[in-house]
């Protein structure tokens, strides 16, 4: 475990906690894309299939349970909580996320490390996570005033995979392991998708103005 990996995991944890905090305390999911949350729940469900078969460490198992639990509870909150669901803007959150799942599944069926169920599912989760933020970014462009917590959530979510890239670079030079090129490419694509968000997020922070993405 190197500092980049730990920072990445803590940033990821912070992102889900910020979102849970927002939804649980102010009972509002305004500006939050349910589609992205559903995609993330699917990402974790397909990536952590080995949670019962392969024990890596207590940390690893605990973090997997936290990410699974938080992503599914966020989906539940937005869909079924009698107060939160009223603040969900389904007319704006219209990204057809099935159009993301299908190509990712097809790509995983053709481009993977080895053709086993767990491996294809894991590869699918990598591809899906790379594009899972798209419905949320589209919604942010439509939502005129992005509240701070939602902006922080997206920023932290984008930063975690960026830190993982440093982790892979660090491990590449210090350990006799290798990172499969699929992991590299999916991680870099995912981080690049946040590039314009990061730019506008930094600009709004620097000029101390409310974050707004150009339509």
């Amino acid at each position: 475990m190197n500092i980049f990996r730990l920072a990445g995991d803590m940033t990821h944890l912070a992102s889900v906690l910020v979102l849970l905090l927002k939804i649980h305390t102010i009972k509002s999911c305004a500006g939050v894309s349910l589609k992205t949350q559903e995609l993330y729940a699917l990402v974790f469900a397909t990536r952590y299939l080995d949670i019962v078969t392969d024990f890596i460490s207590v940390y690893n198992t605990v973090m997997k349970l936290i990410f699974l639990g938080s992503s599914f509870s966020i989906v539940w909150y937005i869909r079924h909580h009698r107060v939160v669901r009223r603040s969900y803007d389904k007319d704006q959150d219209t990204f057809r996320h099935y159009l993301l799942m299908i190509p990712c599944m097809l790509l995983a069926l053709f481009v993977h490390e080895k053709f086993t169920f767990k491996e294809v599912m894991w590869t699918f989760s990598l591809y899906l996570e790379a594009v899972a933020i798209l419905p949320q970014l589209v919604l942010l462009q439509r939502t005129r005033n992005i509240d701070n917590l939602t902006g922080q959530y997206v920023f932290l979510l984008g930063a975690y995979r960026g830190l993982y890239i440093f982790n892979w670079i660090y491990r590449y030079f210090t350990e006799p392991h290798f990172v499969h090129w699929i992991t590299w490419i999916a991680g870099v694509v995912q981080t690049l998708l946040y590039a314009d968000f990061f730019y506008y997020y930094f600009e709004s922070w620097k000029n101390n103005v409310r974050l707004q993405l150009p339509a």
């Binding site: 995991d9 990821h12 690893n60 490390e113 993982y164 982790n167 892979w168 491990r171 392991h177 499969h180």
Partner: peptide, 10 residues
């Protein structure tokens, strides 16, 4: 042996 490192990552 080259274990693929992703096994221990999240």
């Amino acid at each position: 042996d080259k274990m693929n490192m992703r096994k221990d990552e999240l």
